[in-house]
Design a protein around this nucleic acid. Structure first.
Lengths: 202, 202
DNA sequence: CGAGTCGTTGAACGGAATCAATCGTCGTGG
DNA sequence: CCACGACGATTGATTCCGTTCAACGACTCG
C-alpha cells in the first residue's frame, strides 16, 4: 500500500537499485554516510542502534512496502544499523535524486508531506490503540477505526497473525478474542473480512 | 520542545489566534470545514471519531507542545472531533497561511519535512518500545534510547507519571520497576535524572 | 508426500493492573 | 501564617487476563 504510494512519488527516479540482502546482512551501518532512502520491496529490515558497550537497542522494524531512513535526507550519517531479519529485497533511492525531485516538482513535495502526515496519524492511532489494555476492546476499536462507514465491514489485508502482531497481541490471544467477539454477536467473520454488528456498537 | 520547533517554523505567521477552551469544549467537529492547523500551548486535546451510531473512538491525545490536525492541509473537512480534556489554550494557524508560507519559503518546507520525519521516527520507536512486554526491560530500553552517549544519563522532563503513561504503564508499575532496577544496580536516580550503570549494559 | 505455516483451542503460569493507603510538597486562600 | 486540598511519589496485597507452552487440523508449496 505505502509501497505503491511511494512508487508513484518516486516514479521520476529511474531504475532504483534493487538490493537483495541475505538474512543477517547489513544494509548500512551506524555512523556510515547517509546516502539513500529505502523502501522494503519484500522482507523485513530491523533498525538497531548499539550502545557504546554493544548492547542492541531495536528501534523499528520495516516490513513489506514500508519505507525507512527517510531522515537520511537531513543527516550526514546513519544513526543506526539496518539489518535484514529475513532474506529481503530493498529499493534504494539516492537522496540527492530525491532532493532534486522535490526541488523540481513542488507538487511532489506536497504529496510527500501528505504521506508523512498520514503516517504520523496512523502511528498515533496505533499508539492510542495499544494503550487499551483489554484485547477484546483493542481489537474492536481497531475494527471500528478501519471499518467502511457504509456497511461497517473491514477488509483484512495480510494474515491474522500479522494483524495480531501489529496490535501488539500474541496471535493466540487475537484468535481467542475474535472468537469471543463473534460468540457475543459483536462481529461476523467471513474469509478475510470482518463485519461489525450494528447493535454491538450502540 | 516540539512547540518551540513549530513556533520557529511558523514564526512568519503573525499573531496566531490563541483559543482558550473550557473542559469538554469542542475545538472543531467531525465533518466541519478544515481551516486550521493547531498546536497545544497548554492543556490536553483529545481527537475522537464517532461511529454512525455514536460510539466514540479515541484516536489521539495531544498534550503540551504537540501539534495536531496537520492533515487539515490536505483535506476539506475534519475527520474527527477535537475535545478539550482539561481547560486548554490552543494556537491556531490558518491553513492557507501555512500553505503560503511553504510556497514562499522552500527551506521552511524542508524543515517541516524534517520535523515530520523526526516525528515518524519517534513514534515508530515508541511503538517498538511498547511491544516489549516486561516493564523492566521496557523502561531500561527507553532509558538507553534517550541517554546521553557520553555519560549514559537521562534527563527526565515532566513527571514520572507522565513518562509512565507515555510508556504505556500504570504509574505504580513504573515506580516499582524503577525501584527494582535501582536495587539491581542497573540505574541510579538523582532528582530528575537517571544514570545508567555501565556494567548493567554489558 | 513431507515441511512449513496459518488458524484454532486447551491449560497453567506469571506479571502487570488495580485497589488501597501513606507521605511529602506545593500552592491557595481565608 | 497556617490549614487545607490536590497531586506526585511510593509501597503493599490481590486480582485478572494476556502470555506461554502444547497439541492438532487444514492448507500450500516444493
Amino acid at each position: 500500500m505505502k509501497l505503491s504510494e511511494l512508487n508513484q512519488l518516486f516514479s521520476d527516479i529511474a531504475n532504483p537499485e534493487e538490493r537483495p540482502l541475505k538474512q543477517g546482512e547489513l544494509l548500512f551501518e551506524q555512523g556510515g554516510p547517509a546516502t539513500h532512502i529505502y523502501v522494503v520491496k519484500n522482507g523485513c529490515i530491523r533498525l538497531v542502534r548499539y550502545t557504546l558497550d554493544g548492547l542492541p537497542v531495536p528501534m523499528f522494524s520495516a516490513r513489506d512496502g514500508e519505507s525507512f531512513a527517510e531522515a537520511a535526507m537531513f543527516s550526514e550519517i546513519y544513526h543506526c544499523n539496518a539489518e535484514a531479519v529475513i532474506p529481503s529485497i530493498i529499493l534504494c533511492y539516492p537522496k540527492e535524486q530525491v532532493r532534486e525531485l522535490f526541488h523540481n516538482h513542488p507538487n511532489k513535495t506536497e504529496k510527500f508531506i501528505a504521506l508523512l502526515t498520514h503516517q504520523v496519524r496512523s502511528l498515533r492511532t496505533l499508539l492510542e490503540l495499544r494503550s487499551i489494555r483489554s484485547s477484546h476492546q483493542r481489537i474492536f476499536q481497531y475494527l471500528l477505526l478501519h471499518a467502511d462507514f457504509e456497511n461497517l465491514e473491514v477488509e483484512i489485508k495480510g494474515t491474522f497473525k500479522e494483524l495480531a502482531h501489529e496490535l501488539g497481541l500474541a496471535h493466540e490471544t487475537f484468535y481467542r478474542s475474535l472468537a469471543d467477539l463473534e460468540k457475543e454477536g459483536k462481529i461476523q467473520r467471513s474469509q478475510s473480512s470482518i463485519k461489525i454488528i450494528k447493535s454491538a456498537v450502540i
